[in-house]
Amino acid sequence: MNVFRLIGDLSHLLAILILLWKIWKTRSCSGISGKSQFLFALVFTTRYLDLFTNFISPYNTFMKIVYIVCSCVTVYFIYVKFKATYDSNHDTFRVEFLVVPVGGLAFLVNHDFTPLEILWTFSIYLESVAILPQLFMISKTGEAETITSHYLFALGAYRALYIVNWVYRYYFEGFFDLIAIVAGCVQTILYCDFFYLYITKVLQGKKLSLPA
């Protein structure tokens, strides 16, 4: 565990909590893509099945459980509790276009052809593109609430910190996991456009809106 990974994990946790807090406080999930949140819940449940087979550390186990529980509660809020506020007509990204190719790729390119390993690989590939329905929704409506953009920034910061963590681990531990690194870089690239808008607009006190 290095400092980049720790701050990355905490940034990830912060993103998840910002989103939950926003939905709970405003009693509304407007502007949030239920599809992206469903994909993240799927990512965590398929990746952390090793909770039953491997023990790494109390920290690791605790964070895994928190991520799974929070992502499931978020999905419950969007599709059940605050369903009336969910903008389903703007959340039109076709999820099967992500899940099917990602599933196929997980079968073809993995470290080991075993069920748990394939599910882990699937979750890594899926996480790298799971934010697309959310970004698609923002591009469709042309704007995002400021709190939603803080959520996305914390999520993007987590990804960027994980890349620094991999550079660190490569140099100081001789460790690298190519699948995680390639998927992680793809994921981070998806946030670049958003980072630009966040820095030029949101940090200047403006709402995140796209030019018409």
Binding site: D50, N60, W120, Y162, G174, D177, A180
Partner: peptide, 10 residues
């Protein structure tokens, strides 16, 4: 090293 450290990240 690679095998044993695999998947220790979140």
């Amino acid at each position: 090293k690679f095998e044993e450290a695999l998947h220790d990240e979140l």
